[in-house]
Design a protein around this nucleic acid. Structure first.
Lengths: 138, 138
DNA sequence: ATTCATGCAAAGCATTTGCACATAA
DNA sequence: TTATGTGCAAATGCTTTGCATGAAT
């Protein structure tokens, strides 16, 4: 496994194993927001090590807990994974279902705030995520 | 079933039945964003008609398709339902898991736009939803 | 030796579906 | 009677878990 991936995992307190490295590597190489099953398919095909679905699920959960990945839920029933852990938003193409990362700089009028009176000011907003929906032009 | 609920269902092209009316009624009466199972529990308890889980699922899907409800997904694995169909956002209390509706007027800096250059201007944004995360103060 | 990741198969949930029965127009 | 909603139970799909094996410290 590559030195960089190994360092990344170690930095997050995750013991580097071939399976973990290859799954993390795959997620770093794509912007397609794959599901667990898509990760399993993709990684199984082109892999020096064998891989079971259980390990894919265990590994994805482990990497999410460690902060290497984030879990993205846009449709009910399945989770998607994203190695882009910096604060960002998503655009969902409602025709293809594709999910595209949107950097905060690409959204005008950020940062957002709730009005002072929101619920008597009883809550602190720590973060927010925006999901845009739309279609390809033309 | 009440006249108003009946009219609401008819207006959306849904044939009013006791089960549908009572499920719609329950969702109109709460802001708790219940899951299908919570709807089943709540409605089963205080009900003149018997009710099966299949009917709850069928009905919720039917009401979502008809535009009477919206489906809200904040956690993987289960859908939640909301009779507030006007465009709005959500605040998730990360300690209790509670979901609170946020009216657009309560968010400063709206409306949002993507910058002109976003993906070469290839997409039209039709809508967006914001999910805020935070905690109760103190 | 001890710890812990992996693989397999079984189990667990949320949800959907097939089919028979009931109900309403 | 014709269409359609409902109920039950079985099936499905995604994910988790238990347990035995295997690798690494």
């Amino acid at each position: 496994m590559s030195y960089e991936i190994e360092q990344l995992l170690l930095k997050h307190g995750v013991k580097p194993t071939p399976q973990r490295a290859v799954i993390a590597q795959f997620l770093l190489s794509t912007h397609s927001h794959p599901t667990a099953d898509e990760v399993f398919q993709a990684v199984s095909e082109s892999l020096p090590v064998p891989l079971s679905r259980a390990t894919v699920y265990n590994t994805l959960n482990c990497l999410v807990e460690a902060g290497v990945l984030i879990e993205v839920v846009v449709e009910p029933g399945k989770s998607r994974y994203d190695a882009n852990t910096s604060q960002h938003h998503h655009f969902v193409d409602t025709e293809s279902g594709k999910i595209i990362d949107v950097r905060p700089e690409e959204v005008k009028n950020l940062p957002l705030k709730l009005s002072e009176g929101f619920l008597d000011g009883a809550f602190d907003v720590e973060d927010y995520r925006i999901t845009f929906f739309g279609k390809r032009k033309g």
